[in-house]
Design a protein around this nucleic acid. Structure first.
Length: 478
RNA sequence: GUCCCCAUCGUCUAGUGGUUAGGACACCGCCCUUUCACGGCGGCGACAGGGGUUCAACUCCCCUUGGGGACGCCA
């Protein structure tokens, strides 16, 4: 049974890179009928917040990446918050101390920083000197009696080859020599990432660790821990990072970086899932074609880590817009309206649902994000008669306009059907048809060169407004 | 500074020794059409550089360059 996990730290909004990691884990689990677990890594008491946990959960659910075990639903391998697992960390810590694989370190942060700075300056490899590694029993006792604060470090074996399997990068090999003894338990009693992650992944029986490749160089540390503790080694898969358009690590400077921000910008969850999957993964070719528009369901059937690229991927907002537009067009006007309920408050609609739906139908193909739904209202509300845009009109056309005005004034409510009939009638009567008829009129009515079809202006604008626009045009051109 | 990872069109990618180097977004053109958009068709456009290995390298090896990451009592 394949078991994978997404293990974010709740120190902010769910990052788009984190979302992709979660997605890959999810797809991998679904593909092989495994379990996808959510675990909250909240051991950084300074930065972890409840709000972040809530945001993480909300964003993940919104993306449709629901977990099989984790917060809210539990599971057989809980608890799923690291802060609730302290007894476990303690238990294995004792074991490491007993076997001599871990030892207390009394160095102060200041001391360590000084050490590091000197190494950096001299060009030597930066690693802990191992100062406290072989403290005499007397010294140890003395330090403890003085109630000196201490952390626990893992004793890195000398000149040991550390090997592990990585499904994306291939077999990896490191020399333990590059690593200094690292802290596994902080002096405040909280475990560090490299330690807790191992205990949890091992105890939760995680078989594949899919995560960002910023963790690649941490992996040797974790592998040593697995070995010391006698845990079976999982298989790793280090996915490349997502970069901003300038090729540097995605950060606030690049605009939206969190799932929540993308949501605010009017992107649909299925579009984000699809887009994120394509950032690094590609569906296998079928009949020489490579399908790119894929639902979570479809991707769950096709996903494999073999088709995940090693190359870092830059955000391509244009493509996200394109994908979003496709999914938006797949939705019913009713659905789109339910996602943009605020437009009903706009005075143009004045709570008129039916009118809002007509509007959405008229402009659906023009929407790329949900925010476009609102911003396009101005296509109808902002109007200016542009004489140059419309071009010269002959007397015949002006007469037609006058007749149209009468039609508007005389008719009851306007709909696609009676407006269509009116056009047909006028076309015949004045001998003007096709472009000759429609283009000048839509320029008059919309004041713009592009936008919804002409008929929609008749059924969306109020009669007063239609009359106003026609009268202005007649006056102007007569 | 030390170590690690990565390198195909502007961007996302296919490609696993022999291909006219394929697709997608963007861009441009044409078509469809009562405009724009949508849609359809077509075009532009890439193997970072240098050495090897080989009958044959985008593909394998080495170096250079460029980019990213790690080196925390952050994750």
């Amino acid at each position: 049974m394949i078991r994978v996990r997404f293990a974010p730290s709740p120190t902010g909004l769910l990052h788009i890179g984190g979302a992709r990691t979660a997605l890959f884990n999810y797809l991998f689990a679904k593909r092989y009928n495994g379990k996808y677990i959510l675990r909250i890594e909240d051991t950084d008491i300074e930065r972890s917040t409840k709000e972040s946990v809530d945001n993480l959960i909300r964003s993940l659910k919104w993306l449709g990446l629901s977990w099989d075990e984790g917060p809210e639903i539990g599971g057989n391998f809980g608890p799923y918050y690291q802060t609730h697992r302290f007894d476990l960390y303690k238990k294995y810590l004792d074991k490491l101390i007993d076997t001599g694989d871990a030892y207390p370190c009394f160095c102060s942060p200041e001391e360590l920083k000084k050490e590091r700075d000197e190494q950096l300056k001299s060009g030597a490899p930066v690693k802990y000197s191992g100062k406290c590694r072989n403290l005499t029993p007397e010294k140890l006792k003395e330090n403890i009696e003085k109630e000196k604060q201490f952390s626990i470090r893992f004793k890195v074996p000398e000149h040991k080859k550390i090997v592990f399997k990585d499904l994306i990068h291939g077999d990896m090999e490191f020399d333990s020599e590059i690593l200094g003894d690292f802290v596994i338990m902080r002096s405040n009693g909280y475990p560090t990432y490299n330690y807790s992650v191992v205990i949890d992944d091992a105890l939760m029986k995680i078989t594949h660790i899919i995560r960002g490749d910023d963790h690649l160089s941490n992996t040797p540390k974790q592998v040593m821990l697995y070995e010391s503790l006698g845990f079976p080694l999982p298989i790793f898969a280090h996915v490349s990072m997502i970069l901003g358009v300038d090729g540097t690590r995605l950060s606030k400077r690049h605009g939206a970086t969190s799932v929540e921000e993308f949501k605010k910008q009017g992107f649909l969850p299925e579009a984000i899932d699809n887009f994120l999957a394509l950032l690094g993964w590609s569906a296998p070719e079928k009949d020489g074609k490579q399908e790119e528009i894929l639902s979570l369901e479809e991707m769950s059937k096709l996903f494999s880590l073999e088709h995940v690229s090693k190359t870092p991927a830059m955000m391509n907002i244009d493509k996200l817009h394109w994908i979003n537009g496709i999914y938006l067009r797949k939705r019913d006007p009713e659905e789109i309206l339910s996602l943009t309920p605020n437009i009903l408050d706009h005075e143009f609609f004045n709570k008129n649902r039916e009118k809002a739906l007509r509007y959405i139908k008229a402009l659906k193909d023009h929407f790329f994000t949900l925010n476009d739904v609102e911003s396009h209202i101005t296509d109808f509300t902002e109007w200016k008669l542009e004489k140059e845009l419309v071009g010269p009109l002959n007397e015949n056309y002006i007469a037609l306009l006058k007749k149209m005005l009468i039609f508007i004034k005389k008719s009851g409510s306007l709909d696609l059907s009676n407006v269509g009939k009116a056009f047909k009638f006028l076309s015949k009567e004045f001998g003007i048809k096709g472009k000759e008829l429609y283009i000048p009129m839509r320029k008059i009515l919309s004041g713009k060169e592009e936008g919804a079809q002409l008929q929609y202006f008749f059924i969306l604008l109020s009669k007063e407004e239609l009359i106003r626009r026609f009268e202005a045009a007649i006056k102007e051109f007569e």
